[in-house]
Design a protein around this nucleic acid. Structure first.
Lengths: 347, 347
DNA sequence: CCCCGTTGAGTTACCCGTAACGTTCGGCTA
DNA sequence: TAGCCGAACGTTACGGGTAACTCAACGGGG
């Protein structure tokens, strides 16, 4: 008879009721044993656990979530891209911290587009996540609607967002650009260039540039040329972007880059062309990436605690899930790094 | 009466039956409309869709998977760490490709330990993923057991694995180390150092080192000193590791690093100490990271198609899920990059 | 006007685990 | 020894969605 063979369910997985049957108890008893909530004898526990081992039973958390008011342990995490070391570190901070609480990240790479983000949000919400962590503050209209109706905690990271959907942790990019502009102009720089990449949507880098321009303009300097490449914000675009910038505009005294990777690319271009840094031209980056730690000229940059930002986002999420009080908006802060790739005593 | 208010279920989410009730049809009809499988009139379709929009209904995929023979669209992806750019790129390749098929990565950072991996595997399997992509070929005994019983496709990446649990895509690390050793000795290098990091478990870097030593020894050279730091394989450890290496062993002619980030750190250290590269000392890395593209001396390295590797892993997973024929083992290949940080005409 | 095929829509059962409640039975007390 | 109590375990219903089946209405051909 086919009955003699414990038939696994169609997806070929062992279910609790099979374990129970094999152990000669009811599913409820098996359930109690597995959850260790008491109400069973030691003899029963052993019988059940033997069968768990024998059959290789793995609990089906889908069913658990489905059954009760429990929530899943998924946290949807959207990240623009991982080619940018900065975001890789943020993700690392998030996932590690979530892991310590027994939660998992469901990744979404949005490639800096709201459309991708919207699609991803729709999909990930259909999996009943316990919460969402989103990079950036700008979402499509429909995405915003879904997020409002989602009924799960949401942490928006990266951009400081005083009026978040739910919670927010980030830094004030405008201010960080502003501070850098003020710093460079205070050193005497007047004619400054910018090299970055453009994504069609407004983003943090845009805000930094805005803040930067504002302070430079206000201090009597000028951002004489802004180069926004259609490329990734990485080493090589920094390299050739600098080439383009210097080819079109001769008398630039200092270049502000979208991030450290691009700044390093620019640094290498200048060095290769025989320009001395900082004597001939100043270089400033942003983000304080690990590579800065081994450059022989400390890169002028802006330190952002990437890992900590990710961890904080995860902590806020967990706090919200356990109904602890959570601030709606946290400024994780940045720190300007004077560095040695700009001229300190310029006049 | 409370009935007048469409009460949302306890988790505050709109269910299909609520949509159906609001539209004045049965749940089954609403289900049919949402799946677009036909069997309903245009009038009905409109009624249902109106309520979907009005109530902001989002399908509950958990229930769908739970209900039937369908599988989830989760793919568990384990990655050692994201501080290492190489793995970040692999993950990017995986997630992007999975995304095009409507699948999501559930991330697991194993921190290079089998214990973390085992725990993660247990958890992620309980969520009924459609498949798993694992970095590395070494798993704990219990993990291996679980994986065998999981009944889902598994792709082991990074290490080439001729006898995988299910499928595998990677490169032959031993060979890549061997080739590098052969190349360096062919240039005349005899006394060679190595700087890397050690993780307690055997891993790909270890295999590269083994291959490297074998070919160097076989060619009459010697790996005079192997430094295995207890640190991350990043820029700064490359920097201070080189310092340690050169402090303890004077007459090293060339250093092979675990990866390009460390190699760059070493490069910077040497430059800072006034050593000319490649005249005074040779530098070789591994992985061909983006940073190599802007170095004024092309870094001697070994190119690995990280992104492509990730994509291939995702493709194999998808093929397996759609019952297409899939090779069990794919060698994605590597390519030695001679570069300019070693002396080509050394004698 | 009847029969039958087609179309539209409802009913039922099931997936897996858990909450809530029911049942059994051994042991202790009065 | 009857009565009671609680530990141990069983039964039922439920959650959201879908497959398979059933049923009703309608229109067209004979």
């Amino acid at each position: 008879m086919a009955n003699l063979v414990e038939k696994k369910s169609k997806n070929n997985k062992v279910s609790l009721s099979q374990v129970a049957r094999a152990a000669g108890v009811s599913t409820m008893t098996a359930s109690r044993v597995l959850r260790g909530e008491g109400g069973y004898s030691e003899k029963t526990r052993i019988k059940v656990m033997e069968q768990v081992d024998a059959l290789g039973y793995l609990p089906n958390r889908l069913a658990t979530v489905f059954a009760g008011d429990q929530t899943s342990t998924f946290i949807g995490v959207s990240i623009p891209d991982l080619g940018n070391e900065v975001f890789a570190q943020v993700l690392e901070g998030i996932d590690r911290k979530l892991g310590t609480f027994g939660y998992q990240s469901v990744l979404g790479l949005t490639q800096h587009t709201q459309e991708e983000e919207e699609n991803w949000i729709r999909t990930v919400l259909s999996w009943q996540p316990a919460g969402l962590i989103l990079t950036g503050r700008y979402h499509s209209k429909r995405a915003t609607e879904m997020l409002r109706n989602a009924g799960v905690p949401i942490v928006e990271i990266w951009d400081l967002n005083a009026a978040p959907l739910d919670m927010s942790v980030g830094i004030n990019h405008f201010d960080s650009g502003f501070d850098m502009g003020r710093y460079l102009t205070s050193l005497g720089y007047k004619k400054i260039g910018y090299v970055g990449t453009s994504h069609d949507t407004a983003n943090a880098a845009t805000e930094r540039l805005n803040g930067f321009c504002k302070s430079v303009d206000g201090a009597g300097g000028a951002v004489v040329k802004q180069l926004c490449l259609h490329d990734t914000a990485n080493y090589y675009p920094g390299f050739y972007g600098t080439e383009q910038l210097l080819a079109s505009t001769r008398d630039i005294e200092c270049i502000f880059f979208q991030n450290d990777a691009m700044a390093f690319g620019g640094f290498q271009y200048c060095t290769a062309k025989g320009l001395s840094i900082p004597e001939d031209i100043g270089i400033a980056g942003w983000g304080d990436l690990p590579i800065a730690s081994v450059m022989n000229h400390r890169l002028t940059s802006c330190h952002v605690p990437h890992l900590k930002l990710g961890q904080k986002a995860a902590e806020m999420m967990m706090a919200s899930l356990t109904d602890e009080p959570v601030p709606t908006c946290v400024d994780i802060g940045f720190k300007l790094i004077p560095g040695a790739t700009v001229l300190n005593a310029r006049r």
